[in-house]
Amino acid sequence: MTFEPKIVGFLCNWCSYTGADLAGTARIKYAPNIRSIRVMCSGRIEPTFIMKALYEGADGVLIAGCHPGDCHYQEGNYKALRRHRLLKRILHEYGVEPERVRLEWVAASEGERFAKIVDEFTDQIRELGPLGIKDSLAEAMKDDIDPHEADKEESGVANEA
């Protein structure tokens, strides 16, 4: 059986999520490996979200925002770009290939492009194989990712979950 990677998408509400919806409206078929989370702006996406996704079992993460100059919030996408560049630099220190995290600009009118990106990215991750270091990643990232854990315990949510 071929390996089917799990991919998490973080899409900005105004351009990329709308673009992904357009692929649906136009019935453009693409790989079902991606599952997307909607945020208002790509500028909201923290590097910890990406690490968390990898830690929870994603083999790849796609971040998509408005094209430069088109950000609904003026410049959130530039912030996403800068954070993405920084994250790429440290990924290999965790033993994660930087290609597993991809940033793309997808406009609200680019349904076809979204589908193409997903297909391409899925193939690329399939070639890379599963992210096989999850246990060590978990160990390595424990301190980095867990600041939020502390919040959860405070509010008592972690225990219920």
Binding site: C41, R44, Y73, K79
Partner: peptide
Amino acid sequence: KGCGTCAA
């Protein structure tokens, strides 16, 4: 406007 870039 709730973009959330400050939170990130």
